Computed example of a mutant assay.
Amino acid sequence: MDPSTSTSSEHFSPYRADGKLYGFVCVVTGATQPVGQAIVSELAAHGAACIYACTTSPDSDSSAIDALTTSLTTSYPNTKVISYPYNTTSEEATLVLIDDVLNAWGRLDIWVSSTGLLGPPSITSTSPRDLTAAFETNAMPAFFALKYAPAAMQKTTPKGNYANAAPKDVAYGSIIIVSSVAGTYGGCWGPAFTMATHAALGVVRSGVAVLKGTGVRINAITAGQIDVGVDLKGAGMKEMEQGQFPPSRLQSEEVVKRVVGLERAGRPGEVGKVAGFLASGFSSYITGAEIRVDGGASVMNPLTVPV
């Protein structure tokens, strides 16, 4: 197909003037976490045909994902949201998920890797096992996305007979890695988290050359302080270490106003909107980018979350 024809095709959804994702089949990991839920909601609002909202296991946070699915089905009845148990650190599970998506829909368009593990806050409390776990959780899912999703994204399909359907006549796709500003700066939470998020950002940067000629883009969202609703009074250190982002309440309101340009912590929905942008045609000429969602903190001074 002539390139000039493909970019003007009404079916080449990334170039839709309205940014809609009609026909798109999406995978979002970490869908039980606040940021993952916000991303699923945003893709549904953009009109995606199907979203695989991935959970870590069949029983993990089932109430949260059930509530999300029910809410989105009511708000966006033409978008099918599928709760899918998926081990993000497993190569085999990644291949099974992609096979299931292709067998059911014949296409894959968006892959959002939204995973995270803070790990211990200090080097003295960090063991080699902790470091391995940080890399497996923060960087390995991004690697699997880069390695296996593009081949599926290059498959074209005629228009299906489901809601919000559209044909896919040109190979394209968008891989979005949700990480932290710790991938750029030091001093955010703990050393294992910083090292592992640097690796995740490395996947994005190396991915540009890897994806040449595929029509697939890869970008990173690096978030700063995001209020994910963690109540420090009821959370122990171990529970905090399992989170995707450091609890915003680690810093006082006075400190936040001093170090964050917008003088507040971010909201999960504000990360979700950036993911929607990177999934849509509004970002059609963006790849290999790191989009910081940190309220300007990293410009004013490298974000440091004290322990």
Rank of each mutant, 00 (worst) to 15 (best):
F193Y: 15
F193L: 14
F193M: 12
T194M: 08
T194R: 07
T197C: 12
H198I: 09
H198R: 14
H198K: 08
A199V: 07
A200D: 12
A200P: 10
A200F: 14
A200N: 12
L201N: 11
L201Q: 12
L201W: 12
G202K: 07
G202C: 09
G202Y: 09
V203C: 05
V204L: 13
V204D: 07
V204I: 08
V204T: 08
R205N: 11
S206V: 06
S206N: 15
S206F: 06
G207Q: 12
G207N: 10
G207E: 10
G207C: 08
A209Q: 12
V210K: 11
L211F: 02
L211W: 04
L211R: 04
L211Y: 04
K212S: 03
G213N: 05
G213C: 05
G213K: 04
G213D: 06
G213T: 04
T214D: 01
T214I: 02
T214N: 01
R217D: 08
R217K: 14
I218H: 06
I218S: 10
I218Q: 09
I218A: 03
I218T: 13
I218R: 09
N219G: 12
N219Q: 11
N219E: 09
N219S: 15
N219P: 10
A220M: 11
I221C: 05
I221H: 03
A223C: 15
G224D: 04
Q225W: 00
Q225D: 03
Q225S: 15
I226L: 03
I226K: 04
D227I: 04
V230A: 04
D231L: 07
D231E: 13
D231N: 15
L232N: 11
L232P: 06
L232G: 12
L232F: 05
L232A: 08
K233P: 00
K233W: 10
G234V: 06
A235L: 11
A235R: 04
G236M: 07
M237W: 01
K238A: 13
K238Q: 14
E239A: 14
E239G: 10
E239C: 01
E239P: 05
E239W: 01
E239D: 13
E239Y: 01
M240S: 09
E241R: 15
E241L: 04
Q242L: 15
Q242C: 06
G243F: 00
G243E: 08
G243K: 11
G243Q: 15
G243I: 00
Q244R: 07
F245Q: 10
F245C: 02
F245G: 01
P246I: 01
P246M: 01
P247N: 00
P247R: 01
R249K: 15
L250R: 02
L250C: 11
L250T: 02
L250H: 06
Q251I: 14
S252W: 08
S252N: 10
E253T: 05
